[in-house]
Design a protein around this nucleic acid. Structure first.
Length: 265
DNA sequence: ATGCCGGGCGAAGCCCGA
């Protein structure tokens, strides 16, 4: 079971890039963020032509998340619990019905939170508190869970090209990192870091100032795995190729591979 | 590099992202 996550910065503007990448890499599941459109304007037919079922939690102009899956999507949730008044489309969850390879996945677009002296920062922190609560609730089912997406969290100083310059940014602030760790302390495993100790590996590079060419980036797109999923974790990689292509998103895809549950020791 | 890109909206210029 190969699961990928990609903040595409508009699914309609990025459609040729996403279709090309899906054709080349053929993941079983792709978690999309920042689709910037509604479900009715989502390019469902184009993805179905490649064999994917689509689940979309959309919004006009901003935000928006989706799950593409070669397997049926069951037990759907399209809103992060904890604040019914929150109308930003940043969370969608489903059970991937793939027999012994089955897994619950969520596509997460965690709020950016900048600037930190604006209401956006407390919104981010409260959103993270809600995510922690829901992540804790999900663990009670004792199933394989992969919470993937754009967390807008730089977990450690080794995950940003210039830690000093970014120290007071909402992606790096101690309150942000503490909430990210709080989810790990529940029993979740951050897949890339669990398998790769190398620092300076990034998933986002700004469009400006030739940031990608000079590798001035951030690692902010993550997979958090429940114990049952972590036991099946085989690999986790950042695919740099799409970021270097014409009309690229400012994020590049990350993917992880899980064995099926019958292969767990 | 607190927006110098790039996208949405909508038809110019502003809002937004990290």
């Amino acid at each position: 079971m190969r699961i990928a996550t990609w903040n595409v910065n508009s699914v309609r503007a990025r459609l040729p890039n996403v279709l090309q990448w899906l054709s080349e890499r053929t993941p079983d599941v792709l978690l999309l963020q920042e689709i910037k459109t509604t479900a009715e304007n989502f390019p469902t037919l184009e993805f179905e032509d490649l064999g994917y079922n689509c689940l979309v939690a959309g919004q006009k102009s901003y935000n928006g998340v989706a799950i593409l899956s070669k397997y049926p999507l069951e037990d759907i949730r399209e809103h992060l619990p904890g604040d019914d008044a929150d109308d930003q489309a940043r969370y969608v969850e489903a059970w991937i019905d793939a027999g012994s390879s089955g897994v619950r996945v969520a596509s997460i677009y965690l709020p950016n939170g900048n600037p930190i002296d604006s209401p956006k920062y407390p919104y981010k922190l409260l959103w993270m508190d809600r995510l922690q609560s829901h992540a804790a609730h999900l663990l009670t089912n004792e199933e394989a869970i992969v919470l993937g997406g754009d967390y807008n969290v730089v977990p450690s100083d080794g995950d940003v090209h210039d830690p000093e310059a970014w120290a007071n940014d909402a992606l790096c602030r101690p309150e942000t990192r503490a909430r990210f760790r709080a989810i790990l302390y529940l029993g979740y495993t951050e897949a890339f870091r669990a398998l790769n100790k190398e620092i300076g590996r990034y998933t986002f590079w700004d469009y400006q100032g030739r940031a990608f060419e000079s590798d001035r980036g951030l690692r902010i797109d993550h997979f958090l795995l429940s114990p049952q999923a972590a036991d099946r974790l085989k690999s986790c990689e950042i695919d740099l190729v799409p970021r270097g292509r014409p009309k690229a998103s400012d994020h590049t895809p990350v993917w992880c591979e899980l064995t099926n549950s019958s292969m767990v020791l």
